[in-house]
Design a protein around this nucleic acid. Structure first.
Lengths: 190, 190
DNA sequence: TATACTAACTAACGTATGTTAGTTTAGCAA
DNA sequence: TTGCTAAACTAACATACGTTAGTTAGTATA
């Protein structure tokens, strides 16, 4: 791990607990065992730290949806594979994912607009999958916007409670979520 | 509306967009048309603003779950009424709800611990309702912790997208959420 | 009219913030 | 040995922050 990666990794851990505003260069430096000014030998600004994590993850989600749409053809398959990939991306680096979820709004205007547009695109792709499921007769006739947002928030909440040291693997979490989203709580249809 | 309430209301709007750290007393004062120092004639500290909104809402959720448990006896009824009340509380003041969701972690240690314990209690009550539904034979045998957290995040995400100016009433949102959580996306059981 | 309260003001304090400039130290390549 | 580079350092700048102290103008009450 290069020094730059080390800085990023510690910065993520601190951002997760203190938020982007609560991460100060002096605190970050302390954790690294160096002075604040020394950090600028490795990165160009504090904002860069946030931008990197947000756009790195955004591009992973983008790839996932592309792949799923390439490989699978019916909606239940597409959805379950996207859920799986989504959860795997989140769990691969929980610090990064948590920062991604909570701190993107502290991006500066230009990158923030870019970020939001990428996020909207991802939502749109999920809506398309749900609409496909309705057209196929596999899914109930829900409002796709409502369903996509509710689904996404259910998926994303994993970063709030998942513990890699626990018993569940990311794959098992994905399966539980998939089950929950498809069949709901109720035993009989109402 | 007293001056104090006016300050709270504007503070919430600003906290929603800028976060707790991004709300400065000088910005708040500017929006009020006064000087920063003048705010301290009405409130005792910036932290107080955050504490008030967090604990006001927490107590509303607490009342809701008490009421629901008092009035209804089977799990599907309890759950659907709690969903309804939860959404109504959220939609009654979206600025407050959004701040409640995002900014509670910037509470100082003592109130934060208190807050988290109240939140855990609410989660526990939801788990009990789900467990009751399983025991009654109404609900699938899900893991209650997982289900409660997933349910809650689906409910809470309403603050991210609900627009009071749109076509849906809070009650309709609650009904859609209830439907989604109970029956899921899939038409047939799998 | 005299008093007290409300709500604003100005000025400042002490601290913290991101960042820059210039310098130093240690290890490696020529 | 000399020179280069990576990575740290010290010192400082300009700005911003929450908050306090002391004061003032207007308004209601006695």
């Amino acid at each position: 791990m290069t020094r730059k990666e080390e800085i990023r990794s510690i910065a993520l851990r601190l951002m997760k607990t203190h938020g982007f505003g609560g991460l100060t260069m002096r605190l970050l430096a302390k954790e690294l065992g160096i002075e604040a000014a020394s950090i600028y030998n490795h990165i160009s600004s504090k904002d860069e730290l946030l931008e990197t994590v947000c756009f790195d993850l955004a591009s992973k989600f983008e790839s996932a949806v592309l792949e799923v749409n390439d490989i699978y053809f019916n909606a239940p398959e597409k959805l379950s594979m996207l859920v799986k990939q989504h959860i795997e991306i989140l769990c691969a680096d929980l610090n990064a994912s948590t920062v991604f979820m909570h701190e993107w709004r502290y991006l500066k205007e230009e990158p923030r607009l870019d970020f939001v547009s990428k996020r909207n695109h991802y939502e749109q792709e999920i809506r398309k999958i749900i609409q496909l499921g309705i057209d196929e007769g596999h899914f109930n006739e829900v409002e796709t916007k409502f369903a996509a947002l509710t689904l996404l928030s259910a998926l994303n909440s994993v970063v709030e409670w998942y513990k890699p040291t626990g018993t569940l693997t990311p794959l098992q979490v994905a399966q539980q979520l998939n089950q929950f989203v498809l069949t709901g709580l109720s035993k009989q249809k109402i």
